[in-house]
Amino acid sequence: MASKLLAAAVRHSPPDSRCWGNAMLRELDFVESDWAAVLWALGSTTAILKHAVPRGVRAWLVKHAGKRGERVPKSIARSVAGLASGVVISACVLAACLFGLSRLSLVLFPEWQLNQRAWAQWLALLGMPEAIFVITAVVLWRKRRTVAAGILLGAVILIMHVIVHIATHG
């Protein structure tokens, strides 16, 4: 699955990133153990995204600026503001979930000791925020598309962070 993820990232990356992606994909054949191969593929996917995403954004901005002329800076600023507010909303939701686990659960259900249970931590860190992100993004999609996209971006960042954390720290 990890190698498929890397192959997909390579396939969808711009040509200059694809060259590096193919290099990492080929090295995967020489990694000895399965677990090391998984780590290699996840690390490589991160590296490809770090390389490709800023270039993709730059190319998108150049393309749209070329098409729409002078009005573009305003629309770009509005889109960026929408995206940023979406990301901020998702960060607040995550913070609220973690606060709920660490403080509120101790007050409301002290005997359950939820902050010490692994499943509750995963629920507060990943399950609940991701569910809220998806529902909010679906609700906002028609009227506030950029904000919804920002929330989805926050969801993807959270998932990527968890994957990279598990890959590097076990």
Partner: peptide, 22 residues
């Protein structure tokens, strides 16, 4: 040098090594 060999020599993971090489 191959990327994987550099990774083993330096102890750097691919996610750290390749951005440096790039």
């Amino acid at each position: 040098r191959y990327g994987y060999d550099i990774s083993r020599n330096t102890g750097l993971k691919s996610g750290t090594l390749y951005p440096i090489l790039m």
